[in-house]
Computed example of a mutant assay.
Amino acid sequence: MEQEFSNLLGNAVQHGDLQFPIRGSLEVKDSSVIFIVQNYGEPVQEDILPFIFNPMGRFSQHASLDLGPSTGLGLGLYIASEIVAAHSGTIEVTSNRKRGTTFLVKVPVEK
């Protein structure tokens, strides 16, 4: 799970507008751990959202144009989603200009 947290936070730093805060929260609610990462920057295009967790996906124009080809392999979100799935959890993303980009991870807590 540490790797999943690191990947989502790293993604927020890489793709967010650093003039705005990156927000993260972690809580236990309804027998699940809920982890949220939110950043502001260019929103992810709506037609790309269904594919954002695909391996080798590098969808950010900002990363490609401003940061160059060495910004990553496009595996971070894929790895994060696989870690969450391995723990029987879910990961969702929403993105728009007003609310920013938000990743919501929900993983059940075993008793």
Score class of each variant (00 low, 15 high):
V33D: 02
Q19F: 01
Q14T: 12
V28N: 04
A86W: 03
Q45G: 02
V33K: 07
Q45D: 13
K29T: 07
I34V: 12
H87K: 15
V13C: 07
N11R: 01
N54Y: 11
G89W: 11
N11L: 05
T71Q: 12
F53R: 08
I79V: 14
Q3I: 09
A86H: 12
K29E: 13
L73R: 13
F53P: 02
D66I: 09
I36P: 03
Q61M: 11
K98Y: 00
S25K: 05
A12P: 08
L65I: 14
F20T: 01
S6A: 13
L67W: 04
E110L: 04
S25N: 09
F51G: 03
V37G: 03
F59T: 10
S81I: 03
V107I: 15
S88Y: 08
Q14I: 10
G89D: 10
Y78R: 03
F103G: 04
S81W: 11
E92G: 00
V109N: 11
E46F: 08
V93D: 04
L104N: 02
G57Y: 06
I79S: 05
N7R: 06
G57S: 12
E42Y: 12
N11K: 09
V13N: 05
G24K: 00
D30E: 15
H62C: 02
I91F: 05
I52M: 02
F103H: 01
G24N: 03
T90M: 11
F53T: 02
S60F: 09
L49D: 06
R23A: 12
S6P: 00
I79D: 12
F20V: 01
P43Y: 07
V28A: 08
G74R: 04
T71V: 14
F103R: 06
G41T: 03
R58S: 04
Q45T: 07
M56S: 14
A63T: 05
G68L: 09
T101E: 00
L65R: 14
I52Y: 06
E27R: 11
